[in-house]
Amino acid sequence: MAQPRADAPSKIILAESDLHRVVDRIAHQILEKTSGATGTVLLGIPTRGVPLAHRLAARIHAFEGVDVPVGSLDITLYRDDLRLKATRALGKTELPPGGIDGLRVILVDDVLFSGRSARAALDALNDIGRPSSVQLAVLVDRGHRQLPIRADYVGKNIPTALSESVKVTLTETDGADEVKLIGGLT
């Protein structure tokens, strides 16, 4: 996938306050769709899925006082493009103390694009336990799916060109909350 150059023009899609609203909305949707988030575990996909999962859990707790266990699921070793790029460092895989067996797992990621990361996450999940069901929550869905995968919770749909890229930054990882569209025609 061609990446836009660093000096390519960029446009802010979600500013800080928008991003917070979007996270709040996903939290509400999860509460709605899962009857109060009982029997649910949030697993963030490193890097930015992990702080997102923690934020969702915090918002859910703020809205309804429910404590949803949070963990992380690194998918690096399960990626189908491992060999196409330089070796990547591994992220952390940390399951909550109660594990995931018999629970509803919601995978949390920043951007849904080809669907390959979600596929890798399903494979990784398969090797660590047997959840009762798996759902997917993403901050941004930019389209261009290459696999039959869809998200259950989408913060914002952003139609993009293939020549563009979506850059999510979060305070925890990057020092600021923002979603930018980079490259393409402006």
Binding site: T76, Y78, L90, T93, D123, D127
Partner: peptide, 23 residues
């Protein structure tokens, strides 16, 4: 350091039931 950090992740993963990784 990258090797040692990666090894720590590998050690964490080797505690699981399915020890095999597809990498």
């Amino acid at each position: 350091t990258l090797i040692l950090d990666t090894a720590a992740e590998m050690a964490a993963l080797s505690g699981r039931e399915v020890k095999k990784l597809p990498a």
